[in-house]
Design a protein around this nucleic acid. Structure first.
Lengths: 178, 178
DNA sequence: GAGGCTATCTATAACCT
DNA sequence: TAGGTTATAGATAGCCT
């Protein structure tokens, strides 16, 4: 609607873009007004220019309309809203998953260590038995040797080393929203 | 812009109003889209019909745009935005802290278990020494006895039991936002 | 840059199916 | 009631000041 048809894509010429923004913004606000009057619609329209100036239209209290909108969308299942907030929430969920995985690994490691200790305790009891000696004692040594071997194998798999997991992202800043 | 000029005032005829609402609403959304593309403007447009249905347009995240608007108008730093999202985000932060605490406890427990095992390994080496016997052997038994005592004490403090920590809230649902 | 002009393009009111 | 058509009102691109 003008002297020539234009493609709907960013206007590269700075001045033209500025002028068109001014004209079309006014047109949009007018249309919003007309719709609200003709059809008794409740409208909230917010426009930011590239330079960050705000323009708005509302036939009602704009914040009240925004609140009404939030209520209305909150009702329609929360999957949608989750999507809208995704960037930050993806990060949080990733962080949480990271922590959860780490917890599971630690627990596994823990359980393994505990089983080692339990086994050792049994050996200790055996070794403290007065009867321990001769063939019995050699059986204990076999047990202990196997014990150590298993432990070393586990360490080789990185389950029981002193730095078994990648460092978690505990950086609180990474969890600050917006 | 039609077969006749119309006055901008509520359309009384119900059907006409409905039809005009549908047409003009689409027109408005299109104009909003075009403005956002042509001029790189950030736009949030919310329209409620008389019957309460919501229509919206945003070239960006609409809630982010609303938040930006609120910041721009209220100028009340970001405490405001955080407040708005608080209930859920508090929960997430609490969950994260919970996981982090749990992780630290698990790591502590782990370190303790590892020290136990290291000590046991030392004992095993001692016990496998051919010289082991007589007074030497009794020293090992003392070591082992002390070992078990310490372990039992730790267990008494709940650090080394088989359920040392409260169950974490792994429920994914509890992390869904809004 | 802001405002005005006008040829031209778009949106849409009234009508039709 | 929804969707398509068309004459016409309205919006605006390119210019000019």
């Amino acid at each position: 609607m003008g002297r020539g048809k234009i493609e709907i894509k960013r206007i590269e010429n700075n001045t033209n873009r500025q002028v068109t923004f001014c004209k079309r913004r006014n047109g949009l606000l007018k249309k919003a007004y007309e719709l609200s009057v003709l059809c008794e619609a409740e409208i909230a329209l917010i426009v930011f220019s590239t330079r960050g100036r705000v323009y708005e239209y509302s036939n009602n209290n704009i914040k009240a309309t925004i609140d009404r909108y939030k209520k209305a969308t909150a009702e329609t299942s929360n999957a949608c809203t989750t999507q809208e907030l995704n960037a930050q929430h993806e990060m949080i969920l990733a962080e949480t998953e990271n922590l959860q995985k780490r917890e599971i690994l630690l627990e596994q490691e823990n359980a393994f260590l505990r089983s080692k200790i339990a086994e050792n305790e049994r050996l200790q009891e055996l070794s403290m038995m007065p009867a321990a000696g001769g063939q019995e004692y050699s059986a204990i040594q076999q047990y202990l040797a196997r014990n150590m071997l298993q432990l070393n194998m586990m360490e080789g798999q990185g389950v029981s080393s002193y730095d078994p997991l990648p460092p978690p992202h505990h950086d609180k800043k990474s969890l600050e929203l917006q």
